[in-house]
Structures are given as structure tokens and as C-alpha cells.
């Protein structure tokens, strides 16, 4: 293997790598969002059943996918942290959680505003909405646990256990909610269950891709702050401050995430 993956497991080297990657992912996120919105909001025709209310799909479905997928990625990092005991893993879990929670909330919010014109109410105890709500609770639980532990290493490990317990439970929760739902109200009419036109599907997939790019960019930016905060006592952070030009003794730094990183290895 030519690439030494474990080299980047060290926060100091990952910091530089993330800094080089952020502009690319940010650019991709901006471009795909604009393209996706253009396809979905401008080009795509009005749905003959739901009228223009269906256009919420372009954020609802990508947000719901991203909310779920981010939890799986968190669990993957948590597992890596347990197996390899790398510090970076816990930091990545910490960096991903707020964005995952945000997308899950967006899925719930847009679901409510889509449900109102389609189902006649803002909230129904639909199986998918209910499981998404529970997923949101799991994110809140992780962040609450992290917030109440002062020692970051303990927070990493406790968070990893909680995330793994959560990810094992997610299929059980989904199945049980499905079961509960079919017993209580029968099959519900789902928006978007009818076959979609190609333009609509394209718009949705582009928006889903945009959500991916955004999540990667924002979590990389966040993990860089986390790395700096946790390693502020180490020498490499001091060198980095000088190399990046934040080293002025007067102190007010004007750095933005993704500012160029030539000085960092």
C-alpha cells in the first residue's frame, strides 16, 4: 500500500489534510446545491397530484437520507475508535453529530410542512416520521452526554459506546415502529410514492449529493477546530499558528475555515 492511512489518523496530519480538502468539498456543495435547486425549483414540472407542494421533496428526502447516513458514519468512526484507539475517531464522531442532528431536524420540519397540504395535518404518526423523530432523540442523547463530560477522552469513549448501542438499536426501532404503525393505522398514503418523472428524480439525487458534500465540508471544518482546541497545549499547534500567520502577539486572528494551509504539513 502506497498510502499510509494511519498517518492521517494522527490529528496533527489530519488537520492539514482536512484543510486541503475543505475548499473542494465546499465548492462541490455550493455548485451541486445551485444545480439541484435549478433543476428542482425551476425546470421540473408541477406534480399533477400534489401541485407544487411536492417541491419540498428536494430538501426533505436528501435531509432524511443524510440524517440516517450520518449516524451510520458516526457509528463507523466510533467502532474504529474502539478497535484502533485512535484519537481522531472520537473527534470525527463529535464533529458529525450536530450536522446529523440538523439534517434530521430539517427532515422532520419539512415533513411537517409537506404533510399539511398532503395529509391535512402537520404531524401524523407515520412510521418513517416517527423513526426519524427517534433518530433525532438519539442525536440529542449523544450531544447531551458529550456536553456533560469534561474529559474529552472519556467523552470520546462514552460517546462511542452510546453510538454503537444506538446503531444496533436502529434496525430494531425501525422494525418495531413499522409494526406498530401497520397495526394502528394501516398503510398510509405517502407523498412521493408514485413513480417520479426523471427530472424530479435527477433534481433530488443532485440535492442528495449536495447534502453529502455539505456534510463532509462542514464536519471537516468543525473537526479542525476540535483538533486545535484539544491539542492547544502541544508544540505543533504553536508552530502552526506562526506558519499560518495567526502568530501575531496582539492576537486577534482573522482566520476563516478553509483559509490556505501551505504551512501545515
Amino acid at each position: 500500500m502506497a498510502i499510509h492511512w494511519f498517518k492521517y489518523a494522527a490529528p496533527a496530519s489530519f488537520y492539514g489534510l482536512a484543510g486541503r480538502m475543505i475548499p473542494w468539498f465546499t465548492g462541490a456543495a455550493v455548485v451541486t446545491t445551485l444545480v439541484g435547486l435549478y433543476i428542482g425549483m425551476v425546470l421540473a414540472p408541477t406534480d399533477f397530484q400534489q401541485g407544487d407542494s411536492y417541491r419540498i421533496i428536494y430538501i426533505h428526502v436528501p435531509a432524511a437520507w443524510m440524517g440516517m447516513f450520518t449516524y451510520l458514519v458516526m457509528a463507523g468512526w466510533a467502532a474504529a475508535g474502539v478497535v484502533f484507539n485512535t484519537r481522531l475517531s472520537g473527534m470525527m464522531v463529535q464533529a458529525l453529530a450536530p450536522t446529523g442532528a440538523l439534517f434530521t431536524f430539517v427532515a422532520l420540519w419539512t415533513g411537517a410542512f409537506w404533510g399539511r397540504p398532503t395529509w391535512g395535518t402537520y404531524w401524523v404518526w407515520d412510521a418513517r416520521l416517527t423513526s426519524t423523530l427517534i433518530l433525532f432523540f438519539l442525536y440529542i442523547g449523544y450531544m447531551a452526554l458529550r456536553a456533560s463530560i469534561d474529559d474529552p477522552r472519556r467523552a470520546d469513549r462514552a460517546g462511542a459506546v452510546l453510538t454503537l448501542v444506538g446503531v444496533v438499536n436502529i434496525p430494531i426501532i425501525y422494525f418495531s415502529v413499522q409494526w406498530w404503525n401497520t397495526l394502528h393505522q394501516g398503510a398510509s398514503v405517502r407523498p412521493g410514492s408514485s413513480s417520479m418523472a426523471t427530472v424530479m428524480l435527477t433534481g433530488m439525487l443532485v440535492m442528495a449529493f449536495a447534502a453529502w458534500m455539505y456534510t463532509i465540508a462542514i464536519s471537516l471544518a468543525r473537526v479542525r477546530s476540535i483538533i486545535i482546541e484539544r491539542e492547544q497545549h502541544s508544540a505543533w499547534v504553536g508552530e502552526l499558528l506562526v506558519a499560518e500567520g495567526h502568530g501575531r502577539p496582539s492576537g486577534t486572528s482573522e482566520a476563516l475555515p478553509g483559509s490556505n494551509e501551505q504551512g501545515a504539513r
Binding site: 432523540f137 442523547g141 447531551a144 452526554l145 452510546l162 448501542v165 438499536n169 426501532i173 415502529v177 409494526w179
Partner: peptide, 20 residues
């Protein structure tokens, strides 16, 4: 309170099958 927030969502399947 923290324990409640962590644990209650994970209790849901037991609640569904038990009360069901």
C-alpha cells in the same frame, strides 16, 4: 436526567411490543 435522555429512546421497541 441525562440517563433518561439517553435511555428512553432505546426503550421504545420494548414499549411497542409490550403495550401492543
Amino acid at each position: 436526567v441525562l440517563t433518561a435522555v439517553l435511555v428512553l429512546p432505546l426503550y421504545i421497541p420494548a414499549l411497542i411490543f409490550g403495550a401492543g
